[in-house]
């Protein structure tokens, strides 16, 4: 049995595979004690090989697991995982807890070119989490909430802190909170489209990572892509893509 493990800043995922078929998937929050969480994630399973990816990949290597451990970057893992889930995809977009990545891939799922946000959290899951907090809405519901808006203000700041200030001052001026929420999502979509363009934006684009579950983000990106004759694909469990890819790369 092969285990693919993706340790992100917010959550960790496990995909167990046997004979190239997924037998089990698990996910847990990373918390401040990732090592402990990793133990829990692997409870009761005994893989022969582990492939770790994500920002905590080295942690898995150092955890002293009773099996062979390899590491791959999340870029390569997402490319491989998405190629398996959506073989027609030519670009992979992954929006996770603290980074956004745009990856252009070949017909065989190899990385051609990639872009990542730099150290700042602008446009990532963290940004959504932070701004959802301003509205006192759980981040899981933020997308549906934003979709209720119909007159979004243009939000220019992509800096998490400034965007909050901008949102608060829009509220003070009487804008509808749903509209502001939509405006914030649109700001991320614009930024994401720019990153996709930097890797060439070959359609179809497949959306991975936890943020792909946000219906407003998916809708906005789909609209933007359709305008450019492109297509957006979202797999059923987008947050598992990295772990799946890692397992496939064993």
């Amino acid at each position: 049995m092969i285990a693919g493990i993706d340790i992100g800043s917010r959550s960790m995922e496990l995909v167990l595979m046997r004979d190239n078929t997924v037998v089990e998937q698990r996910t847990l929050p990373t918390t401040f004690d990732p090592l402990r969480q990793l133990e829990r994630l692997l409870e009761g399973v005994k893989p022969e090989t582990c492939v770790a990816t994500g920002y905590g990949r080295e942690l898995v290597r150092e955890a002293g697991l009773p099996c062979e451990v390899h590491t791959v970057t999340e870029i390569k893992a997402h490319a491989a995982g998405m190629h398996y889930l959506q073989p027609e995809a030519r670009t992979v977009l992954d929006i996770g807890g603290q980074d956004t990545k745009a990856i252009s891939i070949t017909e065989t799922g190899k990385v051609r070119k990639f872009e990542m946000n730099d150290r700042c959290a602008a446009g990532t899951g963290k940004f959504l989490e932070y701004t959802a907090g301003v509205f006192q809405i759980p981040v899981e519901d933020f997308g549906a909430y934003a979709l209720r808006g119909d007159n979004p203000p243009v939000i220019n700041s992509m800096c998490t802190v400034f965007a909050e200030t901008e949102a608060t001052s829009l509220m003070a001026r009487g804008a509808r909170p749903e509209d502001i929420a939509l405006g914030l999502h649109m700001a991320i979509a614009r930024r994401t489209m720019n990153m996709l363009r930097r890797v060439g934006l070959t359609s179809p684009v497949a959306f991975a990572g936890g943020v792909a579950r946000n219906p407003c983000m998916a809708e906005l990106l789909r609209r933007d892509l359709t305008r450019e004759q492109g297509e957006l694909l979202v797999p059923d469990a987008p947050e598992m893509t990295g772990a799946l890819g890692a397992a496939l790369l064993a």
Binding site: E74, R112, M116, D118, R119
Partner: peptide
Amino acid sequence: IETDYSMEDAEQLKTRVEAFLEM
């Protein structure tokens, strides 16, 4: 790559560099 002297972005840079090497 664009960076400076601080070590804050070391993890992200490492991911980028490793992904480049994988290619």
